[in-house]
């Protein structure tokens, strides 16, 4: 009996040792490709996702505790910075690029408009450290959070002890962002057979496949590769995109191809937010291409769309708006973490 009891204890200890929290199942449609993110090195748990969500909304991640990730990546805008061509960070400083929307990040291999970041885990370091964004260091954040009452127990639940490290902060932030899956637009309902396109949307879909799908590949609506789309250089920014990072001629003026999902929530468009309306974007692709040796092959052939066709194309693009995603309460500000007493009686 004694032997059995101690065995039981050994088993419990072993199980406790391997306990890493409640598994979080990432749901996505069967017509999505396999994710690029290696989940074996950072397997999702509900505790880590919840911790990442708290960190995402916490302005303590900035030097003066004023700017959070959500300051420029708002859930109600598909995690973009709607109505801002360039985003503003700490001390009202303006950056040089449009804050991109955040969703379907598990399917992306490199990050930022210029691909400077090679892994989702490391992406947060860029805005955290940028003097015009959050102007903070990951080491200082770890110190600040360690001194807080509410974070060490949260790290204990997520990682098994109260120690706060850069690795843990970054992995938790990744976990939350990996759960931002946009797959509930009308397009998805059509794919799943629960809705159908109007004849105008169907015609727009045909035009999309003929003209746009080479870069904005469905079902993610981006290949997440880099391309030059014939924008004139804005001489107030002189942004050469990927070329400035790799210093290679063939990468000059290449920017990451953004997804077309959630378009209505994420204006203005392009890496510098120069177009406020979808009409202006289509005008650029049909009339405004500036020739360049690196221009995307499909654009070198030229795109011709009548006004009627452009209207139909836009009707289709609007079926990529994913209300279910944009208003998903699970992705929003975690009120109960930041204001646990609100709504409770004294």
């Amino acid at each position: 009996m004694k032997i059995k009891l101690s065995l039981l204890w050994i088993c419990l200890f072993v199980i406790a040792g391997f306990y890493v929290g409640d598994q979080y199942d990432l749901l996505y449609p069967n017509y999505f490709p396999a994710p690029a993110y290696d989940f074996t090195k950072n397997s999702l748990t509900k505790e880590k996702v919840a911790l990442g969500r708290a960190l995402f909304y916490d302005p303590k991640l900035s030097k003066d505790n004023t700017i959070s990730c959500a300051s420029c990546h708002s859930p109600y805008n598909g995690f973009a910075h709607t109505d801002h061509d360039l985003s503003h960070g700490i001390n009202d400083q303006i950056g040089t690029r449009n804050a991109p929307a955040l969703f379907n990040l598990a399917w992306q291999k490199s990050f930022m408009w210029d691909g400077a970041i090679n892994h989702l885990d490391m992406q947060a370091l860029a805005p955290i450290s940028h003097p015009k964004e959050m102007n903070e260091s990951i080491a200082s954040i770890a110190q600040k959070l360690q001194a807080e009452v509410k974070y060490p127990p949260f790290f204990l639940r997520a990682f098994g002890d109260r120690v706060i490290t850069g690795e843990r902060i970054l992995k938790a932030l990744s976990q939350f962002q990996l759960t931002l899956v946009s797959a509930g637009a009308k397009y998805d309902q059509v794919k799943k057979g629960t809705a159908s396109f109007s004849s105008q949307e169907a015609n727009g879909y045909r035009l999309f496949q003929a003209n746009c799908n080479s870069c904005h590949v469905e079902p993610l609506f981006s290949s997440y590769a880099f391309a030059s789309n014939g924008l004139a250089i804005d001489t107030t920014l002189n942004d050469f995109g990927k070329g400035a990072i790799t210093k290679k001629a063939r990468d000059q003026l290449l920017f990451k191809i953004p997804s077309l999902r959630n378009l209505s929530y994420t204006y203005p468009y392009m890496h510098d937010g120069r177009f406020r309306k979808l009409r202006s974007v289509l005008k650029h692709y049909t009339e405004g291409i500036v020739p360049h040796t690196n221009l995307a092959p499909r654009l070198q052939k030229g795109i011709t769309l009548s006004v009627r066709e452009q209207t139909d194309l836009i009707a289709f693009l609007l079926t990529l708006n994913d209300k279910e995603f944009v208003f998903n309460a699970d992705h929003q500000f975690p009120k109960s973490f930041f204001f646990p007493k609100e709504g409770l009686e004294d």
Binding site: K41, N42, A116, L120, H130, A139, T165, G166, L170
Partner: peptide, 23 residues
């Protein structure tokens, strides 16, 4: 390792030996 995401210990980016603007 460079392309492997976040690591702990001596590889933790807290040590000031990781570039932030470019991986």
């Amino acid at each position: 390792t460079h392309a492997g995401g976040a690591f702990g210990g001596d590889l933790d980016p807290m040590h000031g030996m990781y570039w932030t603007w470019q991986s």
